[in-house]
Every structure is written in C-alpha cells, then in structure tokens.
Nucleic acid binder design. Structure first.
Lengths: 339, 339
DNA sequence: CTGTTAGCGCTTTCAA
DNA sequence: TTGAAAGCGCTAACAG
C-alpha cells in the first residue's frame, strides 16, 4: 500500500534544476523566471504531483487538525454541534479529528492522549458526565495545545469556553407562562449535582421574584432522568395540593415522558396543563407531543463559535503576550411552538 | 504556539550517547544494554518525552488516520454510523478525520482533496445524493488510497462496500402488507440514481411476482426528497385511478411528510391507508405518526463493518496480489411497530 | 534569478 | 552493544 507519488526532487531531476527552484516555482515565488516556472508547473501537472502534506506538517510543526471530543454522537445535540464545527473548519484549512467519550472519563483520557500524539493543533471538548478530575486537561496546557470547551464545561480556572446560559432562557420561560396567566408553575428539574440544573432553578426563582410571586420549594421536583423517575416526578407535581397548571421541564426527553403520562390521565395538553422544555430533540414537527415552548441552546452555533474561537487562538502569533482566556456565553432563548 | 518538546536528540545529548541508541532503547530493542536502556527511559520520563508522531507518520508514510465522508451528521442515520466507525477505530490505533458533504458533489470533491492532502491511510464514504460522476473516487484509487463505501454506494465497478440489502427488507414489507389484505400497494421511492432505490424497487417487484400480483409501474413514484417533492409524490399515488391502500416509502422523513399530507386529506392512517417505511429516525415512540412497520438498516453496524473492512485492507501486507474487492451485505429487516 | 545546504525528528541499515 | 550516516519531502536562509 505504499504510494509512489512524485516529489519535487523528481521534478528537479527531470528538469535538471534544483529542488528549491521547483519549490519556489510551485509557490509562485517572485524571483523565479517565468520560463522555469512554466516548465515546472507543466511537469508537475503531467506527473500529477501533489505536495506531501505529512512532510509539510512535520516541517512546519503544524497539522491543521483540530481534535474534537464529545460524549456521544447519537445524541442530536452533539451531532448538531459537531456539524457546526465541521462547517467552520471546512471554510478554513483545518480538519476535524473526532472522538466520543461515551461519557466515560477513561475514554476521554485515552482520546486526549491519542490526539496529542497526532499532534492536533488544538482541541474542542465537551466533557463526560463522570469527569470530575482534570489532570488530563492540564497536560494539554503543558503541551501548549489550546483547548476550547463547549456546552459541558469543567469547573476549572483559566479555560476558554463557549456555553449557553440557561438562566436567561428559564426566566423567559417562566415569564411566558406567567403572562399566559399561570400562577402555580412547577419545575421538573434533573439531577441536582448538575450545573445545568442549578442554572435552571436559578432562572426559575429569579423570574418568580421579579414578578413578585413567592417561591414555593415544594413546586420543584427532581428526576434521575430515567423514564420511571420522570413519571414519578410529574406524578408528584400533579398531586400537589395547589393546582399546578404549568411545568418547566429539564429537557425534551423528560418532557415527552411527562406529557405522555399527563395524557394518560385524561388531562388536556396546553389546556389543563402546559409544558415548557429545553430543546434537544430534532425535527420537533414530527413529534407526538410538543411542549408549548422550548428553551433553545443552539448546539450548532455553540460548535461554530467554539471552533472560531479556537482557530483565532491558533492563528494568534504573539506568543509573548500573557495568556488570556476567552469566554462566549450565548443566551438560551425561548422559542414558542406555533402548534 | 510552537511547542518546545524534548526530542531523542536532546536525550542523546544529555546522556552523551547517539540518537540511534536512544531510539532503540525506547523501543526495547534487543541489543541495548540494560543499563543504557534504563538511563534513557528514566531521562525520557523526566523530560516528559513523547515521540513526535508527525515525524513518524512522515517517515513511515502512514498516518493511522481514516477519512470519513458522509452527507450530514444531523441525520441520525449517519450519526449512528459514525458512532460505529469511531468505536471501532478507538479499539485500533486509527483515528477518524471527519467531513460532511451536505449532499453536494462539490463539497465531496473538496473533502476528498483535503483528506488526500492529509494523507489519510484510507477512506470511508457514503456518497452525496447528487453524486453521479465518480472521477474523484478514481483519483483515490490512483493514489492508492483504499476506500470502503457504505450505505450510499456509487454505481462503480471494483469497489469495496458495506451495504444493507434493501431487497430482503422490502420483500418482507410487501409480503407483510399483502398478508394484511392489501392488493394495491404503491412504492414511493427516492432519487433514481441511488442504488438503494433500485434495490427497493427490485424487492417490491419480486415480492409481487412471488405472490402472483401483476406489477403496475404506475404505482411507483419518485421523490427528490425535498418536502415539496415528497408531498407531490404521495399526492400522485393518492390520485391513482386504482385505490392505493398501502405505500412502501423510501424513508422515515419522506414517510412523515406523506403521512402528514394524508392526514390533512382526512384519510385515516393505518385504516384508509397504511405506510411502511425504512427506519432512520430514532426514538420512534415519540413520533407523531408511526409507520405501521419499518425496515431497519443497522447504521451503527454498517459503520462498524465498513471500518473493520477498511482496517483489514490497510493491514494487508501483500501488495503483490491482484486487487480483490470486498463486499458485506447485511440483510435489512422488517420491524413491526406495536403501535 | 537560481543553486547549495541545513534541518525538521525519527528509523534503520551498515560498520565498528 | 553502540555509533555514524543516510534518508523520508519539503522549506528557507544564505550565497552566488
């Protein structure tokens, strides 16, 4: 399987000139005679010459490759995100090296090792759920490989990242429901240890305060994200002594289960009870139940922004400057479903 | 952003030995004194030495990188597939270089060019739907870069591929509908240039013949897969002079549009008209309309198999042998939806 | 305008 | 058991 591709050396030999002349001719260097340049280009064409990038990468100490690690491509949030990443790199001269952590720290570490070996110029990472130690990222810093985190951000100092602020979207969601006249609004949140959960609750509480509604902690229930857990949680809300007429739900998957259960109880969706959720299912128009509104987190855009940030970091020439860190925090945004 | 990583040269200098000794020591070469070996390893450890893979790639003319081109990661069929690809490479020493063609030949060409430049060892491709000329793949053959196609296969001679045989699944589907009593069964097929379309039609026709039903070509319509095209096609079938009571549809997306239109026409799904489709949407239990049954095409498995095939091709040493081509054809399988 | 030369980091003969 | 040297393909500083 070894290629016998022509090299500049071969071209030089045939034309009885030096390799550097060939190299320069190919690069349209100013100081090459038109005649020689033509000759070289012609022969290169004929021989089907193509520069050996691996040689160039090696020589330039740059691979124009970006390593991307994310939990799982099966989740459409992440496949959207990588789609955004790829679209940006396609417009630049970079290429994407891909890895899935499957939400395991161990795999994450292995991938980072592999990518470091491949000498990626930089990395884009959305961390695994189980990741709580960060040595493997410190290693990258030492190796001088810039990293931009996105969506799932580690709790580290001095990092670059792109994330989506859930507080704003949640506030919009609650405000939206209040304007619709709802007064008893539940929050069906996810596992309490997640940062994203904290943000949701914060938005929820803030919106209530802002509208002078008393925060009632018993209106907040949590699910472990299992189907059973989801049903159990919504059950609890429906059984609340005050009549809950609207619920803000941790995500679409949970919302689907919740709505399914609600309908089984002969409650009319969007009438007896309204749901607002956080978008992570695609093609919502094909879905059986739609939440009345969704907080959009812009995975594609996060992918784009993170990639742009990384490329900027890579092209920054002045090594001398103090390292500074960039953050982009997109605002999540409530989208009303015109169902 | 230039790394100042230690090299074997540096180690050699510090230890006052030659680079070749260092290289050998690091590789546990038999003929190196235990003492020197230890010294070298110790120092390498201390300096945090890591071999420069780009140098090795260059020198070995191998990058352990596999280029993967597929239409669009947003489509869950393909994100499942790439997930399978990545899982296999993760177990080997290969890495995935990713690109989306967005179903445009031009982008496909550019990506191939880019990946060839990156000197990928081999490629995995699922072609764009607009691809009907194949010079860009011939180029790869000339460059001695093995390609394994999967799912969307070009109509070329002498290629390696993994595909899912749609004939068997389609026959199962038609048989299923016949057993349910349907006699006028439409085929809403995709763009005719796709091999997968031909197979669907073949399965459709064969199943009819086998059951002694006359094949009526006017019951076959094609869509370009655009929403408008989809609706137009189903319209045509519904307007057929014979009363069509069941339709086999190219894929879930088309089926969704078709079912939506049908329902607008006040036809009762699964009663006035039945749809059977080819699975490419996930979590079907959340969908608004479900086809009565789905032909499963195993994207994850196709990704796995294609990758395994490619890696085998890459590790095959005897260049001398006549080139031979490999095919794996999985059987698609009808899954009845217990709706 | 063109050639000579060194060097990127590593592996691998060949020689000692 | 070790070292010297060549070479992978390309770029670029330096010298004509």
């Amino acid at each position: 399987m070894i290629n016998k591709q022509p090299t500049i050396k071969e071209i030089a030999r045939r034309l009885n000139i030096s390799v550097s002349t060939v190299s320069r001719a190919l690069h349209d260097h100013a100081s090459i005679g038109l005649r020689t340049k033509m000759q070289v280009k012609k022969l290169a064409e004929e021989l089907n010459y193509e520069p050996n990038q691996t040689a160039i990468f090696f020589q330039q100490r740059k691979t124009f490759t970006i390593g991307v690690i994310l939990p799982h491509l099966g989740e459409s949030f992440f496949s959207e995100a990588i789609s955004g990443v790829e679209d940006v790199t396609a417009k630049n001269k970079y290429t994407v090296l891909l890895g899935q952590s499957h939400d395991e720290v161990e795999k994450e570490k292995q991938l980072i090792e592999k990518m470091k070996m491949h000498r990626v110029d930089g990395m884009l990472v959305s961390i695994a759920k189980s990741t709580t130690t960060y040595e493997h990222f410190e290693v990258l810093k030492k190796a001088n490989i810039p990293v931009v985190f996105f969506d799932r951000i580690p709790r580290m100092q001095d990092i670059n990242y792109v994330a989506c602020n859930m507080v704003s979207g949640t506030m919009q969601a609650v405000k939206f429901l209040l304007q619709k006249g709802h007064r008893v609004i539940g929050l069906l949140n996810g596992p309490e240890n997640l940062f994203a959960c904290k943000e949701r609750q914060e938005g929820y509480v803030q919106a209530l305060i802002k509208n002078r509604i008393k925060f009632d902690p018993s209106l907040v229930v949590n699910t472990d994200l299992s189907p059973d857990g989801n049903v159990k949680a919504v059950k609890e809300l429906l059984a609340h002594k005050r009549k809950v007429t609207a619920v803000v739900v941790f995500n679409d998957y949970v919302a689907m289960d919740a709505m399914h259960y609600t309908q089984q109880q002969k409650l009319k969706l969007n009438k007896d009870i309204c749901f607002v959720s956080y978008a992570n299912l695609p093609f919502t128009n094909y879905l059986k139940y739609s939440p009345m509104a969704s907080v959009e987190q812009f995975p594609y855009k996060q992918g784009q922004k993170a990639t742009e940030m990384l490329i900027e970091l890579l092209e920054k020439t002045d090594d001398s400057a103090l390292p500074s860190y960039y953050k982009i925090i997109l605002d999540s945004q409530l989208m009303i479903n015109n169902a």
